[in-house]
Design a protein around this nucleic acid. Structure first.
Lengths: 192, 192
DNA sequence: TTGCTAAGCGGACAGCCGTCCGTTAGGTTC
DNA sequence: GAACCTAACGGACGGCTGTCCGCTTAGCAA
């Protein structure tokens, strides 16, 4: 009987999976839309193996950047310890946007994940989602935002982030959006 | 020398274009992701002809629903005549969401159009964009929203609409989003 | 009518995604 | 260590998008 869930895979399967991720990282950072088939080939696995591990591009990207995503998600609680809740929320959004823009293809993956929740659950979207929940509750408790906002509401509101062109003046477009959303959230706040 | 810009096309080209649109309407309403190649075939034109007219799916969809999109865009000024500006804006958003959800594939097309502005300019996105501008200016003049919001800001803020699943409870998700955005816009309004 | 020319045509083609299914080999049991 | 069972493999394949390029024909002029 196997112990940890990682080892639920057969040893060769495990190796393959890791090799794919390794190759994918280098390929994707080089060119965001590198063909999945060429990643498979360079990893030395067949198409079938590839798609069994990662049913589509989004799943792969989310997994490749899992560490980064987890990083951002974890930042939520740290921020809450050092800033007032509303500043923490805003700061956190900034970081999320930062990563989404920096890691090419990540924004798209997150967007798709936001739509088809459940299908990609547990791949990194969950982490984001619960980080949002944490931040929203803290703000709600502090009376900094209107009560009853769900993480779904929030993620829908910042969906615009996922389609900002990383070239050009993305910083200002993003922060204008985030300002607007923050103001929206603050409206109707009991004010602690 | 030809007169109107429609006739800039050779007569056979014009016919082809119309036949494609005709077929596309029926095919797309039947199945949103009908293969473009089959639309071309059923319209009796080659791939080349098809793609010369509509470089990609979005261009086709936007053109097929041009009438509807124009309809919604035109509604802006009518709404402004009958409601206070902020109600007009909100009502207009409702209609936009309605159409985007109803006409399968339209939301996606609008989303893509929002990203790559310019490439699809004049195909229906322009109409939307200027309708937004109209509404925002009216609200700004009335002091109903904060000054300086661009139509780009606005469209980015409601980008979430384009990725709401048309099945399920889209109405409530959409209106929660729109409420949030409206509140965001109202924040910092001089209040006439 | 005839001839010219460029706009337009349309099918072949290449690249990518995702699936399917016959084959291989890891792990377990005796 | 042999035999078995099934998870995993991997490549062939089909469908779709979008491009390219040699051929056709509409429209015009003489």
């Amino acid at each position: 009987m196997r112990q940890n869930r990682d080892a639920r895979l057969r040893s060769d399967a495990q190796r393959n999976r890791e090799r794919i991720l390794e190759v994918a990282l280098t390929e994707l950072t080089c060119s965001a839309d590198a063909p999945l088939s060429s990643i498979a080939k360079k990893a030395g696995v067949g198409q079938g193996t590839f798609y069994r591990n990662f049913p589509n591009r989004e799943a792969l990207v989310l997994e490749v950047y899992r560490y980064e995503v987890q990083q951002v998600s974890d930042a939520a609680s740290q921020l809450l310890e050092t800033c007032p809740p509303d500043r923490a929320l805003r700061e956190w959004m900034d970081r999320l946007a930062q990563y989404a823009v920096a890691k090419a293809g990540l924004a798209d993956a997150l967007r798709k994940a936001t739509c088809s929740r459940g299908s990609l659950a547990g791949l990194g979207y969950d982490a984001v989602s619960s980080a949002v929940e944490l931040l929203l509750r803290a703000n709600e408790d502090a009376g900094a935002i209107r009560p009853g906002v769900t993480s779904d509401d929030f993620l829908l509101a910042i969906a615009g982030l996922w389609q900002i062109d990383p070239h050009g003046d993305w910083q200002s477009r993003a922060s204008r959006l985030m300002d607007l959303v923050m103001d929206g959230l603050r409206a109707g706040a009991p004010g602690r």
